[in-house]
Design a protein around this nucleic acid. Structure first.
Lengths: 126, 126
DNA sequence: GTAAAACTTCTACAGGACGTAGAAGTGTCG
DNA sequence: CGACACTTCTACGTCCTGTAGAAGTTTTAC
């Protein structure tokens, strides 16, 4: 339930960096500009709008995207920010562990120094 | 690459709580004792050993499981602890975010008080 | 106001991951 | 060597994702 496909991901990334809702057509254009995920090759593959719409519908069903149904070309936007979504994902992963503290310990051990500092600040003093 | 199926998950859970490597047959027995994931019904469904073996092979290919090939009934064990694995997953999720600090902020905000305390201890004083 | 254009919804299919397991091959023990 | 245990191969149904044409609906342009 957590994982997104490559295209779904690309769509969400675009929606996340936009404050305003956008249409499927706009999305399709943005998607075709983005360089192919696999790097090499300016593979400007243009998707069919229906493809984008299908993906958007699926994302809507998953609760990640919201659409304005009143305006005619429907406009789509992300329901939560990327940060929120990512944090939720992390919690989901963590949640399924019976040994949460051990997990957190490992986690902390791998985070960069700068981030550790950030965490310290965020946690403040009890 | 991160997500495990339900059965794969069940197998890993068993391997994780066992310090010693065990055989596919033992695993199958343990699996049949476990109550159906969906709760209701003491659904003691017995799997074929080949099913368990297939799953183990897939987990091996994914690098989560290791098998002793020299002993005759091969014995399987988890490569990393559950805590390690979970922490890696969390990092994987976090890693794909361009706004790591924002994610961490949300994350911290949702963790329980007790865990926040633990985190504080783990981070220590810089 | 009607036909064309734009837009949305429905239906579909291929490919990959996973649950599931029989068939076939190989090693083991008596 | 033959029966049995164990492993590997092959296979299939299902679900998810990428992809999009066909069909239906709404808006627009004359």
């Amino acid at each position: 339930m957590a994982t997104l496909g490559e295209l779904e991901r690309a769509v969400m990334d675009l929606l996340w960096e936009r404050p305003e809702a956008i249409t499927a057509n706009e999305l399709r254009d943005l998607l075709s500009q983005r360089p192919a995920a696999d790097g090499r090759g300016t593979d400007v593959k243009s998707l069919a709008v229906t493809t984008v719409l299908t993906v958007l519908s699926r994302l809507e069903k998953k609760g990640l995207v919201e659409r304005e149904r009143n305006t005619r070309p429907h406009r789509y936007q992300a329901v939560t920010s990327r940060a929120e979504h990512t944090a939720e994902l992390m919690l989901e992963v963590l949640g399924s562990a019976p040994d949460r503290e051990a997990v957190l310990a490992r986690f902390i051990g791998t985070v960069s120094d700068g981030e550790a500092e950030t965490l310290r600040k965020l946690l403040g003093r009890s």
